[in-house]
Simulated scan of single mutants.
Amino acid sequence: MKKITISDVARHANVSKSTVSQFLNKRYDYMSERTKRKIEATIGELNYQPNFVARSLKQKSTFTIGVVVANILHTFSTHFTRAIEDIFHKHDFQIIVCNADDEPQKERKYIEMLRAKQVDGIIIFPTGGNIDLYEQMKRDHFPIVFMDRIIEELEIETVLLDNHLASQMAVDQFIENGYNRIAIVTTSIIRHITPRVERIEGYRKALNSHGIEVDEAYIKTADADQMSKALTELFQLDMPPRAILAGNDIALIEVLKFMKETGKQIPEDVAVIGIDDVTFASFFTPPITTIAQPTNEMAERAAKGLLDQMKKEEGEEQLPIVERFTPSLIVRSSSL
């Protein structure tokens, strides 16, 4: 079967090729409704499929964005990816989502694949294990935005939460409700993942600001499969904590599982706050107090940063920016 071309559409609709091209690119400024309807009907009648490869070559763009998340299991990663897809869809871009599982080797493979596919830019939740690759992208002036995590050695545009403030809000909430034996539990900090490290730092500073000495035994970091052991150690202390700050959604799930398995009541035995507003927080029994990230605002900022880089003229310098967003406290029964 002969492949239908833009010329066939133009001839059938009795308009010029440039008019059809303007229609396909949604440039309707000087196009009547009658012409638009005629072209649309012709495209349907002929079953015309635009040649996106030719379009990419002509406009020097594949209209594709890569998103490399460190771990898709994190609620924030999932919600962010959903938000970024909506934003780029409005700009007629498609996205390719890759999950690195916090493994630098897997991250490298995905970044190299995305660049081989000539995506127009990449948003990365960096594992931190591929400095040379990040540096190469920077040298190539390849559009890139880091999300959620800072790589100190590199000046790359980065969007993330004010993690210190997130911990401060949680500690303040606990103390306001009479708790002063406060622990923090989060996933492994072996790779110095920014939000995990900063939330512990924020926890320390918050306790100090209230005149409470930091008890190192109250700080636990572990992979999810070791979290139960870490929590057991916490509650075997002579003075176990009366409140727990879960540093992220995965830690919160493990804390809640542990409480159920050991028969501990929330908040009667232990008060709980989680950073990241998980979907089940409002209908869990009891409802869980959380610190929420402004996911949509952060996605908008990351998308704008990437689009601005993509429009930048060659040789034009753009100063890297690290922008932090303010979290919000959602008070529910678990911290009262």
Rank of each mutant, 00 (worst) to 15 (best):
K220T: 01
K220F: 03
K220H: 02
T221S: 13
A222R: 07
D223G: 08
D223F: 09
D223P: 00
A224F: 05
A224S: 13
D225Q: 14
Q226S: 11
Q226D: 12
Q226V: 00
Q226R: 15
S228C: 03
S228F: 08
K229Y: 06
A230T: 02
L231I: 13
T232F: 03
L234W: 02
L234D: 01
F235M: 06
F235C: 05
Q236C: 07
Q236I: 00
Q236F: 02
L237E: 00
D238E: 14
M239P: 00
M239E: 14
M239K: 13
P240Y: 09
P241C: 06
P241H: 14
P241R: 13
A243I: 00
A243Y: 03
I244P: 00
L245F: 07
L245S: 02
A246W: 14
A246C: 14
G247S: 08
G247R: 07
G247I: 06
G247P: 12
N248Y: 05
N248T: 03
N248M: 04
I250E: 05
I250Q: 04
I250L: 12
I250V: 10
I253Q: 13
I253C: 06
E254S: 14
V255F: 05
V255L: 12
L256V: 06
K257M: 04
F258A: 04
K260E: 14
K260Q: 14
K264P: 03
K264C: 03
Q265I: 04
Q265R: 13
I266E: 09
I266P: 01
E268Q: 15
E268S: 11
D269R: 01
V270K: 02
A271K: 04
A271V: 00
A271S: 05
I273N: 01
G274F: 05
D276F: 09
D276W: 10
V278K: 10
V278M: 14
V278D: 04
V278C: 04
T279C: 01
F280D: 04
F280L: 15
A281L: 04
A281Y: 06
A281P: 01
S282C: 09
S282P: 10
F283C: 11
F284A: 10
T285Q: 15
T285W: 08
T285Y: 13
T285F: 05
P286D: 12
I288P: 00
T289C: 08
T289P: 06
T289G: 09
T289M: 09
T290R: 11
T290Y: 12
T290N: 10
T290C: 14
Q293Y: 02
Q293E: 14
Q293I: 01
P294D: 12
P294N: 10
T295W: 11
T295A: 08
T295Y: 11
T295E: 10
T295F: 12
T295Q: 07
N296R: 13
E297N: 03
E297Q: 10
M298H: 09
M298L: 10
M298F: 05
A299T: 09
E300L: 05
R301F: 04
R301N: 01
A302N: 09
A302F: 08
A303N: 06
A303L: 07
K304E: 07
K304Q: 11
